[in-house]
Design a protein around this nucleic acid. Structure first.
Lengths: 194, 194
DNA sequence: GTCTATACTGAGATAGAC
DNA sequence: GTCTATCTCAGTATAGAC
């Protein structure tokens, strides 16, 4: 691996996790990394793309584990997997990542709380989102397409806010509570059409 | 009312609603308002405080209506108000505001999606949050304090993301769906302690 | 291919004259 | 209260050394 590139990723990960993305200047990052300012644009192109690289470096294994878990649950339950299992399969690997690398989760939190979700997440989590959306849809056949889509959005907001936007380290416990809450929401009977 | 101040608030509200907070420069705002750059800092102190003033101007009536609705429901149900009524009382006035002033809701959406929630909202919505938290707590006596607090956070994330972070205009319908989902989550039986 | 030095543009903030 | 001029710092771009 290129040394300069890695130094930049490490420094950016640490500083963005601590101070946030907007509050962390490239000049601060490069001084921590001990490299030249222009190397950021040489290796990554821009500050935004540096952030994306920071995310991508850690996101891949998390998403692999998510898909593996979902595969297993689908094999075990051929057909519709219980909603809470699907949610667990999505959330648990993030908690594992948090245990081995807290910095990464902090960065994800910063991304969420600074509203860079769309740009960064949709690029890196596309397949995962498709798979999990399909699994949930299958397990919630009673909902209309419209209501299902809205409930996915509600979930998205709750997840982002909870997993990333709030400090603390006991992610496994947090996940158990979140899964319970979201299951209740998803499985609520449809709202009346007025 | 001071003319310069109002011109600044109007221009800021419009531009931030259209382009977002970060993307809207003070120089753009003042040129729309037809005033001088330094007047921003004279009247508001900083760009952040200008945003806060934009929010405060519209938030007060919404919060008044929220509290009035909650008062009514509490009087009607003396003791514990049904969870879905409480949620409605919180969300409905925002939908009304959206109908009469779409710019405001857009600004709130920008605030959420750009992660300025904590700083801005906690200042302006403090009493409202206390009242609604207390009402919900009363209606959910079976939950532990801890699980209740977490569910409040889950709700917060879902609400912010939904009400403000996603485009579209049919807020009343959206609210009906959101209330249903959140009621299901709040009323789910407690997660098992493992 | 990689790194260094330096310049450019635009941002928010501020001091001081009027 | 308002305006001009200026300051500092950000991200970005480029020219050129190795």
């Amino acid at each position: 691996m290129n040394d300069t590139k890695t130094k930049l990723l490490d420094a950016a990960e640490r500083l963005i996790g601590e101070q946030g993305f907007a509050a962390t200047s490239l000049r601060h990052i490069i001084s921590e990394a001990g490299v030249n300012l222009a190397s950021v644009h040489y290796h990554f192109g821009s500050k935004d793309e540096l952030l994306e690289a920071v995310v991508m470096r850690r996101a891949a294994p998390v998403n692999d584990r998510r898909l593996a878990l979902l595969d297993r649950y689908e094999a075990e339950n051929d057909g519709a997997v219980p909603v809470d299992r699907i949610l667990e399969a999505f959330l648990f690997p993030m908690a594992q990542a948090a245990a081995s690398n807290p910095q990464f989760v902090r960065v994800m939190g910063r991304i969420v709380s600074e509203g860079m979700i769309q740009s960064v997440l949709e690029k890196n989590f596309h397949t995962v989102l498709l798979r999990f959306t399909a699994a949930l849809r299958k397990s919630l056949p009673a909902l209309s397409d419209e209501e299902f889509r809205w409930r996915m959005l509600f979930m998205q907001g709750a997840m982002a806010h909870t997993m990333c936007g709030t400090p603390g380290n006991d992610f496994e416990h947090r996940i158990a509570l979140l899964v319970r809450f979201l299951s209740g929401g998803f499985e609520a009977s449809p709202a009346e059409v007025k």
